[in-house]
Every structure is written in structure tokens, then in C-alpha cells.
Amino acid sequence: MKHRTFLWFILPSATAMVLFIALPILSVLIQSVFAPHEQVVREVENCTVFGCTMTTMVDQEATRALREAEPLGRFVGFGIYTDRNHLATSEIGAQWAASTGIGDFVNRLLNLPFYGALAFTLTYTALVTPLSIAFGFVIALSVNALPRLFRGPMIFVSLLPMIVTPLVGALILFWMVDARGILGAALQAVAGDPTLSVLASTPLMWTMLIVYGVWSSAPFAFVVYYAGLQTVPQDTLESAMIDGATRWHRIRYVVLPHLLPLTTFMALIKIMDNFRVFEPIVSFNAAAHAQSLSYFIYSDLGGETRLLSSAAATSVLTILGVVVLLSPVLVRTWRSFGRGVA
């Protein structure tokens, strides 16, 4: 295809992406090095019969004028990145000096909001991705063992947790584990503690969020693996049997290698999706116990005081995180393209 024709075909799509993805990234970068203006303070001489005193007062008019003239705020460089709510460089130094050991230091570190959010996001990604893939694989094996008649309905039901709006799916689970819901009551009965509430406990809340993650993303792994299982070469399976391979051997040495490319693909997609975990934290009202990077940005943006600069700095750090996560893939494509294999 000629360069010129290509340009015309790609133009609408590229324009949309440049305007609403590339430029916003730029805008985020710029906002993250500007902080809102401080209020303009003026000294006023207050004279009464007893003499004159100097008082300071906020000049509302001048503040508004300044903020309208320069909506970006004042330039602060990396000031926002290093403050307490983000990388907290000076706090880390202080905590390191004050801490009694590595464990204590890690605890103190996780109390800093950004590191807490980062820790949850990474834990969530690291646990939900392999768990949901493994769970989906077992479902796929089981469905594959069903008579053909039952497979369609089974796939229909299995798709539901994945297809449902994340906010809604998480709410449905949340209402069930509420202390007054069916799962909450069951938990209390099992633990023998009638005051037990998921909302009140950090470990339980993390577990619940991860359970939701597996529940909602296992169907994807299931569907992909199920399709992959249909293409496993039957000849290889049967010759493996003739050679005396047991059921487990056949799964280990024939089926799994056949499904390996699918697994890499799925892990990539799932890592991207899990890294942006956001809606379940809103649904579970979990912000007190678990924050993700996305939720951290969202809570800065919401409310009466929109902390745009703070949100922008977190966004930049999150985007850097995404690039780091994707870097193995990027490096691999770079290399394979260099060899001209792509």
C-alpha cells in the first residue's frame, strides 16, 4: 500500500489516538510539574483608637485573578513526585533511620499512600493472573470432558462473570459478603465469630478483592483454553498413549506445550488488565484497606478539591509502571523485528 493511501486510511483513527491518548499523556506530564497557586496573602494595617496592628489576610480577588491567568499553577519541577503522597523521598530516609529492621521498614513504607497502592496493585496482579489462568485451565479441561450437548449452556454461564460490568459484578459479590448477606453469614458461622465483617479487616478485604479478580477473569482463560483444546493434535495424543503415556503425562507433555503460546498471550492481556484494577475497590468500598494506583488517581480527581497535579504525578508513575511491565514484550518484538522475523 502506498504511503499516501495508508495515511488517508489511518488518519481518523490516528487523529483520535493522538488527540485523546498521546496529547493527554503530554498534558499529564506537564500538569505533574506544576502545583496550584498558593493563596495571595496581603498585609493590612488595622488601625483602631488603640493604635495600629498589622494583620495578614487572603486577597480573594488577587488569588482568583492569578489562578485564571495561569490555570496550570506554578512550576515546581519534581516537587510533587517527591512529596509525601508520591515517592516520599525524604520520608523514606527518615523511616529508614527510625526503623528497627527490614520488616519494620517495609511496614512503615506501606503506610505511605503511594507505596501502599503500588503494593496492592502488584500483589493483585501477581496473584490474580496465575490463579485465574490455572482455574480457567481446569474449567476448560472439565468442559471438554462433557457431552457436546451441555457445552453450549456451560459456556454461556461461564461467560457471565467476565462480561458483566466490573463495577456491577463486584457489587453483586460485595452485597453477598456483607455481614448481613448470605456469604457474610456463612463466613461468620464458619469462623464462629458473629461480629466478623469483611469490611473491617484488611487481610479479608484483600482476599475478597483477589477472589473477585479470579472470579471475573477465569472465564477468559477458560474460553481461550477451551478453543485451544479443540486444536490439540489427536494423532500425537494417541501415539503418546501407545507409547504408554499416562493421562498426566499426556497433559504434561502434549497438551500443555501445545497451549503454551496461548498462555503467554493470555498472561500478557491479564497483566495489563489486572494492573489497572479499579472498579472492585469502588464497589467494595475498600479504600480504607486497599488502594490501587488507578483508585489513587481517581480519589485525587474526585471530590470538591480536584487535586489535578497530584493525580497527574501518580498517572505518570503508573504509565511508567505499565511500560516496565510491558518491557519484556517490547524488547522481544524489537529483537525479533531486528532479525526480520516479525
Partner: peptide
Amino acid sequence: AMPPVTLVSGYLL
């Protein structure tokens, strides 16, 4: 791969 909410903070201003 980027979380949409990171872009939202770029749109608002």
C-alpha cells in the same frame, strides 16, 4: 495497556 483513569487526569484541565 494504560489504565484509562491515567488519561482522565490529563483531560480534566
